[in-house]
């Protein structure tokens, strides 16, 4: 079997920000940073969530956004959730890369924190740009700092760090420094811009995509990307720059549960 369903208890709940909570599960999952879990709330729904903790007990970090995440935020320690994990392909840390840049926007920081921890463990020098709409919504800054990453902060409203987007900080940083690889996760429009910046400096990059998933194991086809035919849940959710370049829908649209295209709002 690819990923058996395990029903487990919530072991611990951490309130990260006003709208973000981490749920530590009563199970351990041998996973790579960037891999995800299909999280089932009986009688509600099942959604893909990046694994934000993979050493020790596994965890997911969830932004309250729609019906499912609202219900999940109401859960208490000891409540049950169904987990199918680890799924998909995680980020690839290459041996030859010594100095990496991590760029995360909003809840997109969730899979990047374990990546930073693993990168440092492998002896890499990590620089991170972490962005949020406002200071109180910044996620996991402490985890990056704890492992010794050099952290730049951006907020849309200027309440902390640089006022602006992560890509504004990235542009400034890349003018004076270079990196061997770049790892990006956040709103898709942000990832498009960040990839452009990395490409201009010829820095190999990986992004992590979000799409509507059904099976989560590469059989139903709901998340197949136009142009390249990659399954986000199987060949992704992380893609190299040279892979995502072949995906014509990247930065343009995604498909909803019916398979109807939904276009991204350009900022």
């Amino acid at each position: 079997m690819i990923a058996k369903l395990h029903v487990t208890k919530i072991r611990e709940i951490i309130k990260e920000t006003r709208r973000i909570k981490t749920f530590i599960l009563d199970m351990k999952i041998k996973a790579q940073p960037g891999q995800f879990a299909m999280v089932w709330l009986p009688d509600v729904d099942e959604k893909p969530m990046a694994l934000s903790y993979i050493d020790g007990y596994a965890g997911i970090t969830v932004l309250k956004l729609g019906d499912f995440t609202k219900k999940l935020h109401e859960a208490k320690v000891g409540d049950i959730v169904g987990i199918r994990a680890p799924l998909g392909r995680g980020f690839k840390l290459r041996d030859e890369d010594k100095k990496i840049l991590i760029v995360g926007g909003g809840i997109g920081v969730a899979p990047l924190a374990p990546l930073a921890e693993k990168a440092v463990e492998e002896g890499k020098e990590v620089t991170a740009i972490i962005g949020a709409v406002t200071k109180s919504e910044l996620l996991f800054v402490n985890r990056f700092e704890k492992v010794g990453a050099k952290v730049y902060i951006t907020t849309d409203d200027g309440t902390a760090g640089i006022k602006g987007f992560t890509t504004d900080a990235m542009r400034m940083l890349l003018e004076k420094e270079t990196f061997d690889a770049c790892y990006i996760c956040g709103p898709e429009i942000m990832m498009v811009k960040a990839l452009e910046l990395a490409r201009a400096k010829k820095i190999p990059s990986q992004v992590s995509l979000h799409r509507y998933f059904k099976c989560g194991i590469g059989i139903c086809g709901a998340c197949v990307l136009d142009g390249c035919g990659y399954r986000v849940c199987k060949e992704g959710p992380t893609f190299w720059d040279f892979e995502i370049e072949k995906c014509s829908e990247f930065g343009s649209y995604w498909r909803n549960a019916a398979g109807v295209k939904v276009y991204f709002k350009k900022k």
Binding site: L5, K214, C215, I219, G221, A257, A258, G259
Partner: peptide, 18 residues
């Protein structure tokens, strides 16, 4: 995939399980 007259969202997840 089977095509119908109108768009259909289908059922909520879980929709496919091993």
């Amino acid at each position: 995939k089977s095509l119908s007259v109108e768009a259909r969202e289908g059922h909520k997840n879980p929709t496919v399980i091993e």
